[in-house]
Structures are given as structure tokens and as C-alpha cells.
Nucleic acid binder design. Structure first.
Length: 577
RNA sequence: GCCCUCGUAGCUCAGGGGAUAGAGCAUUGGUUUCCGGAACCAUGUGCGGGAGUUCGAAUCUCUCCGAGGGCGCCA
């Protein structure tokens, strides 16, 4: 099992070790000159002070016996590359194995960890916007992949349900009337609600006083205030859940780890920092100075954990969160899917946690991402210039997808059409977000993401659907073809087989870098290879029954890799569209 | 002022030490209009500039230019 590149790398390792010493990397990569190339000889030659071609020959002399049955051809090329060509029998056997593997050839992790993934984190009584789209979609894909390879994953949705704005929000709710406010929030007019509260807060002194008084009551644990606060949280959470349902993400109420949850732990954070001797007083605030951070004036930059009037802030909460994850959840790794602007803040939180001895280096990872931009290359806005609500964006995706489906396939029954439009519309939005390198900003363009051509969700979904169509027309049970070993007679069949076997590497590359776009690129390449196969290799009209069976088997694995790959991205693959 | 991220073809993006830097879209010119459903082939003075490390650099380092972001009591 596993990618042939991985297999051959392991097989070659002893040959390289014999020539270059233990631990030498054969540096096996895909190649356009052959199926793969091993570049390790050049590095060894440098160290040994020898001619790289001679080194390659020495390696080859040993490797030939190790690769019997695996490679039909090994030749030395250029300055000392080993060009490797796999035997068709080896590829076919590997593919047959993958086809019968529940994980389609993807290796499980050798060491299962408990990993917390922190993502989505919307704010109570505040609208979800496109920034939340990124953290939610990327985080969800990472959760799915880590789980797939055998890790134990805890999702945490760190919703913002605490802080000074709640005084203002609660008072506004009382002004509106509780029932009225609740319905406003649950239907998703969070922006209007928050804005109205904000306006009153800034305009009226009496309202401001009430709000500040309410904050004191909230923090003091006043029962009625807590009940009112609870209404805000419950209605907002209900609204978030409708957005999550539309998006099709895994988050549920069980994953909520609200800021308020850490509230009782905050004094202890400060105490513990004092106990380990890290706490300093600076301008009246309680702070820690992590090494290497400077402010504008070139002075050490503090992480403030308690302000000059005794209040705690998000740094304190984040530190409590680290402690909770390490000591209560006993996680091995924590993944923060948070926007790039938070890089310094998180780095400082991690640094302080390490200084305090709570966190081992490398355990906490910031999976950062860039902005969603409009066609004008500025932050994506709605037509009226307001920041774009996530919910409105998703609704537009559904409308556009429905129109596209009506246009492409008018015969589709109405009931099925809605479901397909959902898969396409939401898939398109998610895929557009996932298919570019997350650290970069990306340009949001409806026409491109919903196109049935190019590197888009609809194109991949279409490739899947057309395979399903082949099986429908063939009236063949999908599972029945899984025991046949495919014959890789044409270049297209061979290329498709090689690609299918690379699913393993694609998933692991994605996990190793927390970069879903790697899997997207792979799936797009797979769809392209399938199209080449589809054009050149008749399936139902194959020359003979054995060829037909072989090609049906290739179709089946392709469809399953595509479906699973999309599933790992949180995108569904309809059987017809 | 300091720090971080980004800069690849007309556009949107891959490629993160290996051989001639790729894809999609768009463009232009052909072929096909037949199967299973939404065709295929061809088409390019492109790695922001410069220096360095290396047998080898789009990739690593430095520097300059450009864009975005962060830098003490909001989150």
C-alpha cells in the first residue's frame, strides 16, 4: 500500500545507505522523464567528493536487485539522477490493494495523537462574516483529515461570549423587549442588533451608564443578568448552527468552548505566572515579557494579563485555554486556525506558555490564513459597501448554483435539483477558499468558482458524477469490479493509476503543512487524468470483456478517491448533477 | 521606526533545493460534432530588481522596490 514513490523510497534506502552512509535520503520525486527520479546520488557525491554519476552507478548496482518486479527500468541520467519506471504489474497490484482498502491506500499515522483544533470562533450577537468562512472551512477540513489518518481530534469552537460589550448588548435587549430581541437574533439580524446597541452606547450617556453598570453585574454573577446574557448566547448559537448546517461543517454544540468557560480560571493564570516568577508590573498592569518582542519605542513588549484596573483580557483567556488543553484534555497538539493578523499575539501567548513550563515547544501551531478579497483587490464588501454577511454570501451561492443546474440539466427533478444545487453552491464556495495557499489573500469571484471548467468544485463533482453515470448505464454493481486487477495497457490508464496511488502522498502533504490546497491540486490533477482516460479509453465499448472490467475497476477507484478527497475537504459529491 | 506575510503568463493560481517553470481561464488557429453528459490538439520574450550560498535556486540568505498586516492595558 502507500504511494509507489514512498514504497520505492523505502526500497532504495539500503542502497543509498550502503554507498553514502546510514540515514541518507534517496530523494525520490515524481518525474516527467520517468515515473520517478531518485536524486540522492548528487548530495552523496558532494559529501564523498566523488563523481555523482559514479555514485549513482554504485547505488544502482545494489538497487537493481532491490527493485526487481517493482521497476522495469532504472537508468542514470543527467548529472546523476536515477530515473525509475515502475512495472505495470507492480502498479496494478498496488492499485488493486488500494481499491480494497477502506482508506484507499492512505497510510494511517504511526503515532495517534490527541489533537485539539480551534476554529470558527464567531462572536455572540455579532454577525459572521467572510473571515469566519475561512477559519470554519479550513479548520473543518483539517479536522476531517487528521481524523481520517487515525488521530483523536477534539474540535473547539471558542465563541466570544464574554467581555465589556455584553453590558451594552443586554441593555439593548431590555430596551427592545426580550422576546423581540430573541427573535431578531435567532433569524440572524445580528449586525443590526449589534449596531443599534453600539449607536445608543456612543450617543446617550444614560445608556452608557446602564451598560457599564450591567457589565459590573454580569461579572459579579448577578442571577438575572446572567439569565439575560444566556438568552443572547443561546439565540446567537442557534443562529450559528443554521450557518453551520448550510455549510455542512462538523461543529455542534458539544464543541463549544466559550470564552466564559475560562472565566473562573483567569485569576489562577495570573497567580501561576507570579509563582513561576514571570509576572511583572508595568504602568500599573500585570504583564509578562516574552523574549524577543519589542514595541514601537524598541522597549520590551509585554503580554498584558491583567490591566491596571484589575480586568483580564483575551491574552489571559488564551493562556487559560492552553493550560486547560494541556492539563485537562491532555492534548498532544493544538492547532489554532486563526487569521494571520493574530500571528504576533499567538506567538507571544505560546512563548509565555513555554516560559511558564505549560507548553512544550512545537505543540501549539498557528494555522494562519489571509483575507478574502473582492475583484477590486480590497476586502470583500457587499454591494452597499457594508462588510459582507456570511449568511448572505451562502444564500447567493445557493441561488447561483440553482440557476446553473437549471441551465445545465433542466431534466433533473425539482427535489433533486435543490440538493444538487446545495452541493454545488456550497462546494464551490468552500473549494474556492480551500484551493489556494491559505496564507495568501484570495480573490472571490462567483463566475470562476461556479464554473464547470477549471480548478473548481463543480468540475471535480462533475468528474465524479459522470463516473456514476457510467455505472448506471452499465448496470454493473460498483462493488463487483473491486476484485479485478486492472490492466494498464494505455498511457492514459497508466497515468490514471499512478495518480490514484498518489492519493496517499497528497493527503499526507496536506496534513503535514495544514494546507488543504495541496489536496485540491491533487484532486484537480486526478480529474484531468481521468478526463484523458475517458477520452482515449472506451469503457462500455471496450474491445473485450476483460478490458471493460479493468476500466470499470479504474472508474470505480477514481470515483471513490474523488468522493473521499472531496469529503475530506467537507464537500459532497452528488451521483448526478 | 521595528517585526511578520505576500510578489510566478493578459487574468486566477500551482510549484518550498533538482534536469527544458506548469495548470485553468482568456486569446488565436485547426480537428471533431460519435459513443457515456458538458470535446480534442496546437498556441507564450513569465519567477518584482540586484547580490550571495550551492554541482544545481522560483524555492535558502542578504539587500532594495512594491502591496497588505501587527506593534501596552478591545478581542
Amino acid at each position: 500500500m502507500a504511494d509507489p514513490i514512498v514504497t520505492v523510497s523505502e526500497l532504495l534506502a539500503p542502497a543509498f545507505a550502503a554507498v553514502g552512509g546510514p540515514g541518507v535520503d534517496p530523494v525520490v520525486r515524481p518525474s516527467d522523464r520517468a515515473d520517478a527520479q531518485a536524486n540522492g546520488a548528487l548530495a552523496i557525491a558532494k559529501q564523498l567528493g566523488q563523481n555523482p554519476r559514479q555514485v549513482a552507478e554504485a547505488v544502482l548496482a545494489i538497487a537493481r536487485d532491490l527493485l526487481v518486479g517493482v521497476c522495469s527500468d532504472i537508468e542514470i541520467a543527467g548529472p546523476g539522477f536515477l530515473n525509475l519506471t515502475f512495472t505495470n504489474e507492480f502498479l496494478a497490484a498496488q492499485l488493486a490493494t488500494a481499491a480494497n482498502d477502506s482508506h484507499l491506500g492512505v497510510r494511517s499515522t504511526p503515532l495517534a495523537e490527541h489533537i485539539v483544533v480551534d476554529y470558527s470562533h464567531p462572536n455572540v450577537a455579532k454577525e459572521m462574516h467572510v473571515g469566519h468562512l475561512r477559519t470554519t472551512v479550513i479548520g473543518d477540513a483539517i479536522v476531517r483529515m487528521l481524523t481520517f489518518v487515525g488521530h483523536r481530534v477534539t474540535k473547539e469552537n471558542h465563541i466570544g461570549d464574554w467581555g465589556t460589550p455584553f453590558g451594552m448588548l443586554i441593555e439593548h435587549m431590555l430596551d427592545l423587549g426580550e422576546t423581540e430581541a430573541a427573535s431578531e437574533l435567532s433569524v440572524g439580524d445580528l449586525a443590526g442588533f449589534y449596531k443599534a446597541a453600539r449607536v445608543k452606547f456612543e450617543a446617550g450617556e444614560t445608556f452608557g451608564d446602564r451598560a457599564r453598570q450591567r457589565v459590573v453585574l454580569l461579572q459579579g454573577g448577578d442571577a438575572e443578568t446572567l439569565r439575560l446574557w444566556g438568552v443572547l448566547v443561546a439565540e446567537s448559537t442557534r443562529y450559528f448552527n443554521t450557518v453551520y448546517a448550510t455549510l455542512g461543517v462538523l461543529l455542534t454544540d458539544a464543541d463549544l468552548a466559550p470564552e466564559s468557560m475560562y472565566n473562573p480560571m483567569l485569576p489562577d493564570v495570573v497567580t501561576r505566572l507570579r509563582d513561576v516568577g514571570l509576572l511583572r508590573e508595568s504602568d500599573g498592569a500585570q504583564v509578562v515579557f516574552p523574549a524577543g518582542y519589542l514595541n514601537r519605542e524598541g522597549e520590551p513588549l509585554p503580554l498584558i494579563v491583567q490591566n491596571s484596573v484589575g480586568g483580564y483580557n483575551y491574552a489571559t483567556t488564551d493562556l487559560a485555554c492552553v493550560i486547560d488543553r494541556v492539563e485537562r484534555l491532555k492534548v498532544d497538539r493544538m492547532v489554532y486556525v486563526v487569521g494571520a493578523p493574530q500571528a504576533q499575539h499567538l506567538a507571544m501567548v505560546f512563548a509565555v506558555s513555554e516560559m511558564a513550563g505549560w507548553l512544550a515547544p512545537g505543540v501549539a501551531v498557528h494555522v494562519a490564513f489571509g483575507n478574502v478579497l473582492g475583484a477590486d483587490r480590497k476586502m470583500l464588501k457587499s454591494r452597499s459597501g457594508e462588510s459582507l454577511k456570511l449568511n448572505e454570501l451562502l444564500n447567493e451561492a445557493l441561488e447561483r448554483a440553482e440557476a446553473a443546474v437549471v441551465d445545465k440539466n433542466p431534466e433533473l427533478p425539482a427535489a433533486e435539483r435543490t440538493a444538487v444545487a446545495h452541493a454545488i453552491g456550497i462546494g464551490a464556495v468552500k473549494y474556492a477558499d480551500l484551493s489556494t495557499d491559505r496564507i495568501k489573500d484570495y480573490v472571490f469571484e462567483w463566475d470562476r468558482m461556479l464554473s464547470f471548467d477549471g480548478n473548481t468544485a463543480p468540475y471535480l463533482q462533475y468528474a465524479h458524477a459522470r463516473i456514476c453515470s457510467i455505472f448506471r448505464r452499465a448496470e454493473v454493481d460498483r462493488a463487483s469490479v473491486r476484485n479485478s486487477v486492472p490492466v494498464l495497457a494505455t498511457p492514459q490508464e497508466r497515468a490514471l493509476a499512478l495518480r490514484l496511488l498518489a492519493f496517499d502522498t497528497a493527503v499526507w502533504d496536506t496534513i503535514d503543512r495544514y494546507s488543504p490546497h495541496r489536496l485540491c491540486t491533487y484532486l484537480f490533477d486526478l480529474a484531468q487524468d481521468f478526463t484523458g482516460f475517458y477520452e482515449h479509453c472506451p469503457v462500455l465499448k471496450a474491445a473485450d470483456e476483460a478490458t471493460k472490467q479493468s476500466r470499470l475497476a479504474l472508474c470505480d477507484v477514481t470515483a471513490r478517491v474523488m468522493e473521499k478527497g472531496l469529503d475530506l475537504l467537507g464537500i459532497s459529491a452528488p451521483e448526478r448533477m
